[in-house]
C-alpha cells in the first residue's frame, strides 16, 4: 500500500479539525476527497505535506509502510510526496527553471541518480512543459510572480511532472480556474496518471471530476470520512448537496 492513514486526529492552533480519519491509497489509484468548507480537506493536505503550523494529535500515516509524520516536509518530498497548492506561493527573484532544477537535483541526489546540468535540464523541462501546454518563456520568469491564477495552477502541475511523485495531493487545484485552464490542468494530470503513482484530488466541487475520473470518492464532513463510493458518488453529491451527507453522519 502506498498511503495508509489510520485514525488521524490533527488540527491547528489547539483546535481539532480531523477527528479520526482513515484512508487507504494504492499505486495506480485516483482518489477524490470531497467535502464542504471547514470539513478538514485542506487540513488533511497540509498534514500530509508536513506544514509546521498543523499538529498531529494522534493516529498514524504510513507512506510505503514507513512513518510519514516522522519526516520533515522536504524529506517527504524527496521520498515522493507532492502537494499542489491551492494558493501557489510567489518566489520573486528566483527563476522557474533555476528552482525546478534545484528541486529535481535534490530528489535525484537523494535517490542516487545523476543530477542534470542547466542545459540537460532545459531539454527535460521543455518536454515536461508540453504536458501543461506551457510556453518556455515561463521558465525564465520568477516562480509564480505575476502569473495568472490559471498559470499558477499549470505551474504546479508542471512541477509535479518534473518531480514525478509517487503520491500527488492536488489541493483545490480547480479553484479559480476558467474552463480552458481547467481542461489544460486536468489533461495534464491525466497524462501523469500511471500504475506507478497515486493522486488525491481534494475538491469542493464535482466539476474537476468530469475531467479527471476518480476510482474512489470519499466524502469528508466534520473531520471524518462519512461516505465512500465510486465516481458516481460525486454526481450524487452534486445533485443532493452536502447537507445530504452531513445528515447521514448525525
Amino acid at each position: 500500500m502506498l498511503l495508509e492513514v489510520k485514525d488521524l486526529h490533527a488540527g491547528i492552533d489547539g483546535k481539532e479539525i480531523l477527528k479520526g480519519l482513515n484512508l487507504q491509497v494504492n499505486a495506480g489509484e485516483v482518489h477524490a476527497i470531497m467535502g464542504p468548507n471547514g470539513s478538514g480537506k485542506s487540513t488533511l493536505s497540509k498534514v500530509l505535506a508536513g506544514h509546521p503550523s498543523y499538529e498531529v494529535i494522534s493516529g498514524e500515516v504510513l507512506f510505503e509502510g514507513k512513518d510519514l509524520l516522522e519526516l520533515d516536509p522536504d524529506e517527504r518530498a524527496r521520498e515522493g510526496v507532492f502537494m499542489a497548492f491551492q494558493y501557489p506561493v510567489e518566489v520573486p527573484g528566483v527563476s522557474n527553471s533555476q528552482f525546478l532544477r534545484l528541486a529535481y537535483n535534490q530528489k535525484a541526489l537523494h535517490h542516487g541518480q545523476e543530477e542534470l546540468d542547466p542545459l540537460e535540464f532545459n531539454d527535460y523541462l521543455k518536454e515536461k512543459a508540453k504536458i501543461v501546454e506551457m510556453d518556455p518563456q515561463f521558465f525564465k520568469r520568477s516562480v509564480n510572480e505575476g502569473f495568472s491564477g490559471g498559470e499558477k495552477k499549470r505551474n504546479e502541475i508542471l512541477q509535479m511532472a518534473v518531480l514525478e511523485p509517487k503520491l500527488a495531493i492536488l489541493d483545490e487545484t480547480d479553484s479559480g480556474l476558467d474552463i480552458d485552464a481547467l481542461r489544460i490542468v486536468a489533461e495534464g494530470v491525466n497524462k501523469l496518471r500511471s500504475s506507478e503513482n497515486a493522486i488525491i484530488l481534494v475538491t469542493h466541487y464535482q466539476r474537476l471530476l468530469n475531467y479527471i475520473q476518480p476510482d474512489f470518492v470519499h466524502v469528508l464532513a466534520n473531520g471524518k470520512i462519512v461516505k465512500e463510493g465510486g465516481k458516481e458518488l460525486a454526481l450524487e453529491l452534486e445533485e443532493k448537496g452536502y447537507d445530504w451527507v452531513k445528515g447521514a453522519t448525525n
Binding site: A49, D74, A77, F85, L102, A103, K107
Partner: peptide, 10 residues
Amino acid sequence: FYLLTRGLPE
C-alpha cells in the same frame, strides 16, 4: 514551506 514541499533542504 512551499520550497520545502518541493524537496529543497531547509
